[in-house]
Amino acid sequence: MNQFSGTETYIATEDLTTAVNASVTLQRPILIKGEPGTGKTQLAVEISRSLDRPLFEWHIKSTTKAQQGLYEYDAVARLRDSQLGDDKVHDIRNYIVRGKLWEAFASEQQPVLLIDEIDKADIEFPNDLLQELDRMEFFVYETKETVQAKHRPIVVITSNNEKELPDAFLRRCFFHYIQFPDRETMESIVEVHYPGIKKQLLREALEAFYKVRDVPGLKKKPSTSELLDWIKLLLAEDIPPEALRTEDKAKAIPPLYGALLKNEQDVHLFEQLVFLNRRVR
C-alpha cells in the first residue's frame, strides 16, 4: 500500500523509487538533487497523489529563515493592539502565526512536506532545522508549549546545489540524484504527458532534442520540462514530423526552438554551429 512507484503522469526510475520507498518506510527526509527541470519539485506532488496524502509546500527564498517554517510571533500587531487597547492583547496565542512545518505537523493524516530549493536559503538554514526534522517536534517559547507531529510527515527536500549542505544535515537524509533520463525513459515520459502522440513526430523531436543537448558549450541545456513544452507547441502548431529533420539544408534550425534554448547566447551559438555545418556540406 505504502509503496511509491510513479504515477500515470510521472515516470520514476527504479533507483528513484527505491530511495523514495526507503525514506517513506524509515520516515526520514529524502534529499533530491538534479539538473533543473528533471522533476524534482514534481516528485513531492506525485508522492502525495500516489499515496493519497495531503501536501504542504514550503518554497524557500534567499530571505527565508528556519523559524518562519515553525511559527512567527507577530509582535508588531500585538504592539498596535496594546496601544489601541484591544482585548486580544492579553493572550499571546493570538499573535502566533503558524508556519508550513507546524501546519504539516498538525495534519490529521500523514502529510507530505516539500521543502523546495533548500539551497536558496542562508547557509545556516539546514542546521536550524536539524532537531525539528529529526524529532518532528519543536518548542514555542512564547506559549511554552511543545508542538509535536501527529504523524511524521514524508519530507521531500530539493536542492539545486547552489550551496553545500552541512554534513550533520545530510547524515539524516536519504539522497537521490535525478539523472538526466535516457532516450527510452524520455519516450515513456513524453508518452505519459501526450498520449497518442504520433510515433514519428516523437522520434524526430527526441532526435532533434538530444542533438541540441549535445551541442558543446551551451549555457543551459534544455531539460525534460523544456522538451515537454516544446512538444506541446509542436502539437499546437501542428508541425509535420518532416520539418524536424535537422539534416534538411534549408531549414536546419528546429522550429520553435525558443522553447528549448532559453538565452540568447545559446541561440546564437546554436545558429552559428548550424551555419558552419551547412557550409561544410
Binding site: E14, D15, T18, A19, A22, S23, I30, L31, K33, L165, L170, R171, C173, F174, F175, H176, Y177
Partner: peptide, 18 residues
C-alpha cells in the same frame, strides 16, 4: 540493483562521490 540503489541513497549524499 535494489540493494545498490538503497545503499547509495543511505550512504552517499553528494553526486560527485557516486
Amino acid at each position: 540493483d535494489e540493494f545498490y540503489y538503497l545503499s547509495r541513497a543511505c550512504l552517499i549524499k553528494d553526486e560527485s562521490q557516486f
